[in-house]
Design a protein around this nucleic acid. Structure first.
Lengths: 156, 156
DNA sequence: GAAGTGGGTTTGATTTTCCAACGTACAGGG
DNA sequence: CCCTGTACGTTGGAAAATCAAACCCACTTC
């Protein structure tokens, strides 16, 4: 029986291959907040400068950030999210929400997002088809690649 | 002027400190799919066994997974998500959605999730207060920690 | 002309990762 | 009994990534 030996083909893994390295999502956070200059990134993220330079190159290559001059003479650059980069923000929102709930229950959240409706923004993930909030138990996984299976829904 | 030198306090960073290492979110993916045994994880993720063992210990310590025996004699264990682990699934869904749209536009998605409403599950992140789909331009960030600022909304 | 700012690169020590092999405990078949 | 196979890791050494500090260059401001 020929069983696949390669890791499971998966969009989660592919996305993490682009933005899953240390600091990459924090770079995106800062850039989405409008803090796109190199020294701002170094200070706000706390990453080594060389690593940060590597990550920035990679994110630009991946089409998630753009590097654009904001000053000639002296040449100065700023990183900004592309459309694709902005579309990664839901990942940041869900990470933040989990952290706020599970790691900051007492100390309070260090950053509040305000939605244009006037209330604090708390992300809720819903089903595009029916509009209901999504829950683990209400989902079923169907692999579409031969040789890969799932063990059925996992209970806690 | 005393400027903070520490990295920005942030729930995104704190959450990534727990699940942001290489393979950790893929472990969560497999465990949520019901594939919680060590050799399944090795095969489906493609991670080195020693690294995987380290990640599993860390995720159990963090309260995201539990390790429970499914057989005495021989002793065999299975990893399952805790309630907190299941609540990280929205992160996986948003990562998958981005990858499906940006990296698999042609080739088709390797895994389809079906919602109990009968349709394919496509996650949409909405505002808990007003129910609208969230968009970058409609959010404003308010740091609640002295010394930390944002540069205003970033345009693409 | 001295010091400061912005945007990085270089250097060398430390830490992680990787892969293959090994160990242990049991089960099944001949 | 012996051999093979499965499940769940641990160990060892080589390769790669990370880290902090120093350095570099082009300007600007004092």
């Amino acid at each position: 029986m020929a069983v696949s030996k390669d890791p499971r083909p998966c969009s989660i893994a592919d996305t993490l291959a682009l933005v899953g390295e240390k600091y990459s999502l924090l770079v995106l956070r800062e850039v989405c907040l409008g803090n796109g200059r190199f020294d701002q990134l170094v200070r706000n993220i706390g990453a080594p400068r060389d690593i940060l330079a590597t990550r920035l190159r990679r994110l630009v290559d991946a089409g998630i950030l753009t590097k654009r001059p904001y000053s000639e003479r002296p040449q100065r650059f700023e990183y900004r999210p592309t459309e694709a980069g902005l579309e990664l923000e839901p990942v940041l929102w869900t990470l933040k929400e989990w952290g706020d709930r599970h790691l900051r229950a007492d100390s309070g959240t260090p950053m509040v997002l305000e939605h244009h409706c006037g209330h604090e923004f708390v992300p809720v993930v819903t089903c595009r088809a029916c509009g209901e909030e999504a829950k683990h138990r209400e989902l079923t996984a169907h692999p579409r690649v031969p040789g890969w299976t799932v063990g059925g829904p996992a209970a806690a």
